[in-house]
Computed example of a mutant assay.
Amino acid sequence: MDATDSATIERFLEMMAAERGAARNTLAAYRRDLDQASALAGGRLAAATPAVLRKIMAGYASLAASSAARKLSALRQYFAFLQDEGERADNPALDIARPATRRPLPRILTHDDVERLFAQAGEEAEGEAPPAAAIRLLLLLELLYGSGLRASELVSLPRRAIAGERAFLIVRGKGDKERLVPLSERARVAFDRWLPLLAEGSAWLFPSGKGHVSRVRLFQMLRDLAGRAGVNPQSVSPHVLRHAFATHLLEGGADLRALQLMLGHADIATTEIYTHVDSRRLVELVNRRHPLARMDVGAASVDVEAPSA
């Protein structure tokens, strides 16, 4: 790799980490994409022309559209950085058409599925001395569906994440960014039952061994619960419960911007995926809520005279 490419890519990644709070995995992906593009450009990516970039992108034709789009995004941001630094007068990547991608709709659970999961978890956590694991699972479920946390955010919650009479959690999410998420009364009750069972000195809210419960273990616990609750285990995961949190809130009239903040999405376009609804509900909405639904059909008709010859 040309020394110029190596140096500018390194500076670009430093900027992404310091100014935009890019996560470690994001930085690693950018590095791979830019190192690959530099190799395809003969080690002179920083000086590449639109023609060179088109040739590079043509070489990605066999990749999934989403993968090619990610590589183009890395190039666009890299050259935008070089522009800002005064090392280029243009951004040649802007001349490249973005590969068409279609974001799949998230899998969601029905309200009935969610009720079954909570009924089963609640039943297992009942009684005089229920197993600690059952109370822990109930709290995990409350926080996943009641607060919309990512699996990694949930399992790594520190013990002090819920304190006093706070009605919210301060969560550290992607890019090491903090955000506020709601804490329901139900979650608070489950937490009050779980706290006395935590080992003294534990740094984590959900400890396991020398660390905390893993995402894989959380996934397994939820699927096992789904099986016991009569819900298809293949349809349940921590991410699906996060989808259900978002979708069901929107169905209840939640504001999209507020939902964006709660979910920790940097781009509202990511949040908009949750605005999907079935066609039956859309038709019902138009028929009941649109101003035309309140107009007299007869009054809306107008006689039109035939034009004179």
Rank of each mutant, 00 (worst) to 15 (best):
T4F: 13
S6L: 15
F12D: 03
L13K: 01
M16D: 01
R20H: 12
G21Y: 10
A22G: 12
A37L: 01
A37N: 06
A41G: 12
R44M: 07
A47L: 08
L63M: 14
A64S: 14
A65K: 12
A68Q: 05
Y78D: 04
E87C: 10
R88L: 03
N91T: 02
P92A: 02
P92T: 00
L94R: 15
R102G: 15
P106H: 11
P106A: 03
R107D: 13
I108E: 15
T110H: 10
D112W: 10
L117P: 05
L117D: 05
Q120N: 08
Q120K: 07
A121P: 08
A121N: 07
E124D: 12
A125P: 02
A125L: 01
A129N: 10
P130D: 03
L137Q: 11
L140G: 00
L140T: 01
E142H: 08
L143C: 06
L149P: 04
G164I: 04
R166G: 08
A167W: 10
L169W: 03
G175Q: 08
G175C: 08
P182E: 11
V189A: 14
E200K: 14
A203H: 04
W204S: 02
L205D: 08
S208T: 06
H212W: 09
V213N: 01
V213Y: 04
R215K: 09
R217A: 09
R217K: 10
R217D: 03
L218G: 00
Q220M: 09
L222F: 03
L222P: 05
L222S: 00
D224V: 09
A226G: 03
R228A: 13
Q234M: 11
Q234C: 04
Q234Y: 05
S235F: 06
L241A: 13
R242H: 03
T247A: 10
T247N: 07
H248L: 09
E251N: 11
L261W: 03
H276S: 09
D278W: 11
L285M: 13
R289P: 00
A293L: 04
R294L: 03
M295F: 09
D296P: 00
G298F: 11
E305H: 15
E305I: 12
P307V: 02
